[in-house]
Structures are given as structure tokens and as C-alpha cells.
Design a protein around this nucleic acid. Structure first.
Lengths: 96, 96
DNA sequence: ATTGTATTTCGATAACAATCGAACAAGGAG
DNA sequence: CTCCTTGTTCGATTGTTATCGAAATACAAT
């Protein structure tokens, strides 16, 4: 098996793994439809899950390259990383 | 949160979960590029993983609606379920 | 009926994931 | 300086996943 191909498979499956958690899809939908950046606490309130859990999901999304973060003081604003979606999941965001 | 929406999230994340395993992506690629049905044993040989593991992956793919099976005697031929991909991941197969 | 081939199921194991509350760190507001 | 808010990390728990070899099942061929 091609080793380059194999690497690509791993990256792709890592993105899928990140999206295999319903709450993460919800986070992305809220982000996409609100059209603005959102914070940990806002999501925590909207989805009724603890801040620590949201923080954990934020980290996972960021790590997979699906979101980016802008920090102002202690507050972190999350937004969608369009680049990754364009490259790997072109039609996905619109389907949300 | 919308309950219908929530159900859709769960289904979508279930598909992603199924695709979050590199070997399953490999199985789909082999299926897609070979242009024919394949068996458990063939995949087992090509990917160098045990037949029982392949069987496990086959079941997962089928369960997620990503593949279909045609049985002839004790042999099961796997093929891609185009319908599901069209509906949920339009551009995915071509990207393999 | 015995042998061989294809697949599934079982039991075990080891790794990973989601979740929470508590504790911690960093900054803003009074 | 003290309190409040925001977010991260930690430890624990609970559940899930991928993997294998062995055993079981189902059928075909001889």
C-alpha cells in the first residue's frame, strides 16, 4: 500500500473521528448559523454541557483544523476554519 | 434544541464514526477503484488484517448504510451503497 | 461423510473517548 | 486588593473500539 495514501487516510479518518461526536456537530452548526464567533461559556449554556467538556471539544475541533481561535484577554472566540472544510468536506457546512 | 435536528446529528455523527477508522476508508477505496464487489478474504489479504477484523468492519460499514452485500452460498460480496454517499457525502468517493 | 473455504461470533485485552466536578490560572471590574 | 468570569487541566468513572485467535457455522466439492 502507498505510504502517502496511508498518511492521507489517517488524516481523513482523524477529521471524521472529530466529527463523530454529536455535540461537536452541534457546535459547528451553531457557529455556522450564528455567523459570528462564539465562546466556551456560550456553547456550554446553549448545549447544556459543562464548560470543561466544551473546552475539551473545542480543543479537539481546533486540533483537527476545523476551527480557529481568537483570544482577547481570558476569552477565546471560536470560528470555523473554512479552509479545511473546503479541502476535505466541501458540501458539509451548507448541509447543516 | 430541535429534536429532529438532534436526530439528524446523531445519524450524521454515526456515519462519521464509521469512517473514523483508517482501514474502513481503505476498504472503501479498494471497493471504489476496483469497480467490482469484494469479499472478506480478499480484503483481509490486501490489508493484512485478520478476517475476523475485516468481518467486523464489514458489519460496521453495512450497518451505517455505506455498503451493501450480495450473498452467494457462504460468500458475501461487498459493494458501495452509492445512495448514502450521494445523500451525506456527495464529493467523498471521488476524492478517494 | 470428510475436507476445505468463507464468514461470523466469542472472549479477552488494551487503548481511547466523553463526561463531570473540583482545582487552578489569568484577566477584568469594582 | 478582592471578587467574578472565562477557560484549562486533573482525576475518576464509565463506556466504546479495534484487534486477535479460537471456536462455531454454513456451504461446496470430492
Amino acid at each position: 500500500m502507498d505510504i502517502e495514501q496511508s498518511k492521507k487516510d489517517n488524516q481523513l479518518s482523524a477529521i471524521f473521528k472529530t466529527l463523530s461526536e454529536p455535540n461537536r456537530i452541534r457546535i459547528l452548526r451553531i457557529l455556522y448559523h450564528s455567523g459570528r464567533e462564539l465562546t466556551c461559556s456560550e456553547i456550554s449554556d446553549q448545549l447544556n454541557i459543562s464548560k470543561s467538556t466544551v473546552s475539551y471539544h473545542f480543543k479537539a475541533l481546533r486540533h483537527a483544523g476545523l476551527t480557529t481561535t481568537r483570544q482577547v484577554a481570558q476569552t477565546k472566540y471560536l470560528s470555523i476554519n473554512q479552509k479545511t472544510f473546503k479541502e476535505y468536506l466541501p458540501a458539509f457546512l451548507d448541509s447543516l
